[in-house]
Amino acid sequence: MGKKTGLEKEVLRLRWKRRLIGTTKHWGLASKIAVYGLLILFSFVYLYPLLHMLAQSLMSTADLMDTSANWIPTDVSGENYEKAIIVMDYWMSLLRNIYLAVVPTLCQTFICSIVGYGFARYNFPLKKFFMGLLLLSYLLPVQAVSMPNFLLLQNLNLTDGTIKPFLVTSLLGQGVNSALCILIFYNFHKQTPRVLLDAAQIDGAGYFRSYFRIAVPMSTAAILVVVLFTFVWYWNDTNLVNLYLGGYHKDGLTTLMIRLSGFEVKYAAMEFPSITESGLLSRQKTTMNDAIVMAGTMLSILPLLIFYGVLQRYFVESVDHIGITGE
């Protein structure tokens, strides 16, 4: 009798364990709650700044002062966006920024792809040494070389407020994080089966044909990731733009990020042209501009969000295939 209840207890215990924690094949309730709970919690943490920004940017001045309207604006108003568009000279800056980000991105992707392919596919003397140099150029801080680089470009008369310095550095594989891109391509091309390229060679394919017909089509996943990253890096960059273009010029090339970092000053100068005292200016900054600054921030990352939205499906899938992991 006692034995039987013991067995029954054991069965009951196992059944509950299966329901709550689950088996190898199926998850129980507790595991599910834990996993989804964590995921949703982290998703909230990740999305919180964006949501905060969006909510703030849509609020009117009255809502900002009203503590009860913490999240949802009482009346959605686009006035902040209208103002921010004027302050940032949005459409013109957007066009220039796209030009300034897209061209170096394409150059960098192409050059890094071919260099990574060269490192992965061919053996040549000093290859190990050059790989070491590549790693070193990635690990050491850019600041150590950025000043001499600038002086060099200046001596070559390339820093004339045009896209030239970006073009030269990206075409020579020294753009923003180029070394990382080369490493991504290197890892990827190392995984492409050698037999395929050898077979192509036997069939009479030369250097260019085997690169463009086999290596490039096979590395679309890596190309996608590098294009996305590089575009983002160039879009968000302010150091290089400040260095090469001398920061903000009224009619020169500029980026939305530069406009954004000078946003408060520009706004205050526009809204209160008579006040130049820094005290008043900073006070305006802290109380009034919050929503408009958020609208400006939202506007400057909007193109990135759209770009990501278009590419994300391929991006998230291609991440699975690409060997960034470097083994």
Binding site: I111, I114, V115, Y117, G118, F119, R121, Y122, N123, F124, P125, K127, F130, L133, L134, S137, A144, V145, M147, P148, N149, L151, L152, T169, L171, L172, G173, Q174, S178, I182, Y207
Partner: peptide, 26 residues
Amino acid sequence: WAQGYFSILPWLIGIGIFFVYSMIRS
């Protein structure tokens, strides 16, 4: 070798000018 060096040539020039030389300058 030639094909390998041809592939990495742009980077090789770039690393020479913008990394090694700039390192020395710095």
